[in-house]
Design a protein around this nucleic acid. Structure first.
Lengths: 217, 217
DNA sequence: CAGGATCCAGACGTGGATCCGT
DNA sequence: ACGGATCCACGTCTGGATCCTG
């Protein structure tokens, strides 16, 4: 267990110190086993970086660095540093907030340390990239807020079951469960009880790409 | 995995067939490891008997034999067959029922298969006793109902924190948690939020002793 | 390519009870 | 003796994400 960074400066220094390291090098220094594939072990990279940076792993309803109010996100990138995947933000709550600024999505996105990791090489040779600490620009917040309002509106009016990943410019809703047989209780548009898969909010790949470009240029 | 008994008759036949077996013999036939102590492994005996009798293990909010509406209880007895310990019934629910016949305690106690097990010998040599299938007599139900009403009254009026195991003639409330640092939210008598240990309903040893005597004589 | 589906680790809750100090 | 405290197994939930098929 590594202690938590005491300040934003210290966190950024740590992030800088691991930039450029290969996964093999970082994992070995932390006595953390390298998996042979990510198909099984999908969350391995995120846990490795939490450990390396001193995030409080496994805590719910709190940012990864509670004292700093900073969220940690790993972002898989290709050979030219461009994000390759959407980013999971949080599960869709049972009790949906009514105001954007009260939402879990807003609080998660308020201040995020994005740590890019190469995905185009064999796992041991993949390198940690230079992290960027991002807050939303007013323009970005406006887009996310609009998306969130649209999605939330559909959820509240009972259209959760017809809410596909196609909605939302930068923020979308997709399934989030161990498998498709997992269901939870919901209320449909007619007010009747129904069953739906648990869902999560995800950031589209383009959004994350824009964040990284903004800080790298 | 052993299939579930199809009828009360079949269940009683199974119980009879394991009566007299030593724990070593029964565990071995089920390929279930014998522990060297019960201090660690407190629930081992209950799980062994669930497996031996075909109960649906690990299911919540249902009797152990759902099709038969029968609950399975292991009862530790001394050299002369007398119960030595109180019996855990169920956890105290967050939302307390208002009517005795709607309560979890009532439904758990409605029909119980009590399986005595000797505790005065070394673990491998302890023998399974003859089980008894018990329903509450009107007199027993009256006592339990009175106890339940008294305890429930105290819980509802916010006196949960001053509710000790001393209350109740046959049914009592005691802590039920991994350790005393575990707390859950509650409301005190003044209506203020407070924290208490999770609790459970337990049958006093005398009650269980009376059940066994009633069927053995 | 991207929407829908899936996978692991670790925390947490519940059911199975017995332990142990005063 | 018994009231208060504790211990294990196992299923479920949550946070970490990437997989994969049309």
């Amino acid at each position: 267990m590594i202690n938590s960074p005491a300040s934003e400066t210290e966190l950024l220094a740590r992030a800088k110190s691991i930039a450029g390291l290969s996964l093999q090098a970082l994992a070995q220094s932390l006595q953390y086993d390298l998996p042979t594939d990510f198909q099984h072990h999908k969350g391995w990279l995120g846990l490795l970086l939490e450990l390396a940076l001193g995030a409080t792993a496994g805590s719910a309803a709190e940012p990864d660095f509670p004292d700093l109010s900073i969220e940690l996100k790993t972002v898989p990138v290709n050979a030219i540093g461009k994000p390759q995947e959407s980013t999971f933000v949080c599960t869709v709550p049972n009790q949906i907030e009514l105001q954007w600024r009260d939402s879990v999505v807003y609080h998660k996105m308020k201040k995020v340390l994005w740590v890019p990791v190469e995905m185009h090489k064999p796992i041991p040779e993949r390198c940690i990239g230079m992290a960027v600490l991002a807050t939303m620009t007013p323009e970005q917040e406006t887009i996310l807020q609009q998306d969130w309002l649209e999605l939330t509106e559909a959820l509240i009016t009972g259209h959760a079951d017809s809410l596909t990943a196609k909605y939302g410019q930068m923020l979308q809703i997709r399934p989030k469960a161990a498998n498709s047989s997992i269901v939870e209780a919901a209320i449909d548009a007619e007010g009747n009880p129904t069953k739906i898969m648990p869902r999560g909010f995800y950031l589209r790949t383009d959004y994350t790409a824009a964040i990284l470009e903004q800080y790298y240029l």
